[in-house]
Design a protein around this nucleic acid. Sequence first.
DNA 1: AACCGGATCAACCGCCAGTCC
DNA 2: CGGACTGGCGGTTGATCCGGT
Length: 258
Amino acid sequence: MGRQPCCDKLGVKKGPWTAEEDKKLINFILTNGQCCWRAVPKLAGLRRCGKSCRLRWTNYLRPDLKRGLLSEDEEQLVIDLHSRLGNRWSKIAARLPGRTDNEIKNHWNTHIKKKLVKMGIDPVTHEPLNNESKPEQSSSPDNNITENEGITNSSSEDNSSTTPTSNCSTDDDSTLLDSICNDETLLKSLSLWLDEPPLADASWNGTGATAATETCSKETSLPTCREDNIAWLLDCQDFGIHDFGFGCLNTMNTLAKE
DNA sequence: AACCGGATCAACCGCCAGTCC
DNA sequence: CGGACTGGCGGTTGATCCGGT
């Protein structure tokens, strides 16, 4: 029998996302919230699979993402968390506001792994490399941590609003953001939100991405998701909206109030 | 200036767990 | 209870970038 593919393979586009596709997805989610990813491509007019849309949104388009290289503090936190949690990237990412599991996973594989090896530490066991007699002993990720163990993420939050590295905006981003800023419909809906007194729902900070998703998946009604959007727009401001290249929202807000 | 190899990271794939009917 | 469906996760791939020669 086998399960159905996650999407109709016929006519489903793959590969890098274009600015136009990004715009459609952002527009759709800002208007309708994150509800039922399977339906998103159809409703948003995208020839993509829902999974791909979700990935694109969570890993790249979400406005509360920090982008840029991880700071020293964040890196240290990742190492610490990895020693306790193992390759549970989503759990690790949940402790690093504005970072995605994919980003952390990539950073681990490209930077941190090598760094640890250079320091003579086994990146898997977190034991000294020349002391590999009991590899499975401390490598077990489950041995000594619970979800609510007191790991602070303040180190990353402390500098979250300050300095994402300078490479956070590419030419494509600029094109995309320009096109978003020039999109009247999108700007109108956003300015409406920014004009309203937003609800104090913190679901988008920290582990909030998950929380927001859960809210949406449990309550598929659009208004709930819309409230989440308002919350993360708030968080955009908390993080420093320019950090995400969404500076146009501020401009728009100013315009809306005039 | 051209080429090459390594580094980086966005995106895909397959599997799994939770939920619904 | 069991099958179908969906969202989420972790591993992997491949296109692009970048520095060295």
